[in-house]
Amino acid sequence: MINEKFVVLMEKYLSNEISNEEKKEFEEMLSSDSNLKAEFEEQKKIKEVLNKMKLKNPSREVWDSYWMGIYNRIERGIAWVVISIGALIFFGYASYEIVNAFIKDTQAPPLAKIGIAMLVFGGLILLFSIIREKIFTSKRDKYKEIQR
């Protein structure tokens, strides 16, 4: 098992953040324990290989258009919310007018009127239930960012 002191000193050594005193202590650790020396050599080698590499840089256009990409996505998101609310109001009103006209129609059979009234009532309960669940989840769920 590697001790914590060794790890801390080694990290400082590898990143050139070690003081002279710590360096002396670290080198004494290495000379007195061949396992620690081997661990250090391996870590140093991996670090050297990693230092030669970097994450691939994308083309300049990516950075030039990065903010606009985000701005457009936010703006379109807002547009979709507005469109959805507008559609909901419009179709809600149209449905109300259609149902109202149907119920007031003296020629329509009473059973059909009961059926359509139940359809509307059920739809409203369903809508209320979904909205309530969404609000409840967004307020209480600590893990909403995690996909299950």
Partner: peptide, 16 residues
């Protein structure tokens, strides 16, 4: 910070 160093050590070890 100590945990950062220790995690880094074990991550590099596993990478090796």
């Amino acid at each position: 910070i100590g945990t950062v160093m220790s995690k880094l050590f074990y991550a590099r070890k596993k990478l090796g």
